[in-house]
Amino acid sequence: MQSIEFETRLQDGVIHLPALYRNWRDNRPVKVILLAADHESQTTPLDATQRLCAILEIGRLCAAAPELDPRSTDEIIGYDANGLPT
C-alpha cells in the first residue's frame, strides 16, 4: 500500500486530493486516516497573560510525564578522558 501525506481543509465534508493524485482511478481501494487539530488555530494573538498560562500548562504537562530514562544527564551525554562530551 502506498502512503501519501498532505494538509488540507474540509470543504462541505469533502477532502480533495492534491493534483498529483487526482489521476488515481475511481474505486481504487484506499485506507484513510484522518488527523484533526485538537482545536482551531488561534485567530487573534494571545496577550501576555494568556501566553504565560499556556507556557505554565506545558510545564505542568511535562512535569507530569513519566521518567523514561533514570540516568543522570552526565550519564546520558557521556564524557571522554579529557572531559569532553562523546
Rank of each mutant, 00 (worst) to 15 (best):
E67A: 07
E75Q: 13
A64F: 00
F6R: 08
L17C: 05
E40A: 13
N27R: 11
P18E: 10
D69A: 04
S41Q: 14
I15M: 09
A48V: 09
R51I: 15
L52R: 13
L61N: 07
I55R: 01
R51P: 00
Q11W: 02
L52A: 14
T49F: 05
P29Q: 06
I58G: 05
N23W: 01
E40N: 12
V30G: 04
S41I: 06
I55M: 03
L68G: 04
Q42S: 12
E7L: 08
Q42L: 12
A63N: 13
G59I: 04
I77S: 01
G59F: 04
T73G: 03
L10M: 14
T43R: 14
P70Y: 03
A19D: 03
T43D: 13
N23S: 13
I76V: 12
D12W: 09
E5H: 05
C62Y: 08
V14D: 09
K31V: 13
S72N: 03
C53W: 12
R71P: 02
L56H: 00
S41T: 02
V14Q: 15
L61I: 06
C62L: 14
P66Q: 03
G13N: 08
S72K: 10
R22E: 14
H16Q: 14
L10W: 08
T8A: 04
V14S: 15
G13P: 00
E40W: 12
Q50R: 09
C62M: 09
L61W: 01
L61M: 07
T49A: 14
Y21W: 15
L68I: 13
V30M: 13
W24L: 15
E75Y: 04
L56D: 05
I58A: 04
A48G: 04
A64G: 09
A36W: 00
H39V: 05
E67H: 06
L46M: 15
I58N: 08
E40K: 12
H39P: 03
G78Y: 01
C53M: 15
Q50I: 05
L56C: 07
I33S: 02
W24N: 09
D74W: 02
A64Y: 03
Y21K: 00
Q11T: 13
Q42Y: 01
A65C: 09
R25A: 15
F6A: 07
A48R: 10
V32C: 02
D47I: 06
W24E: 09
L35H: 10
D47F: 02
A54V: 06
S72W: 02
T43L: 10
D38S: 10
Y79R: 12
E7S: 04
R28G: 00
A54C: 10
L46E: 10
T43E: 11
R71N: 07
P70T: 10
Q50S: 12
G78Q: 01
T8L: 07
I33V: 10
S41R: 14
I77C: 07
Y21S: 11
R28M: 11
D69G: 05
A48F: 03
A54R: 11
D80W: 02
E67W: 05
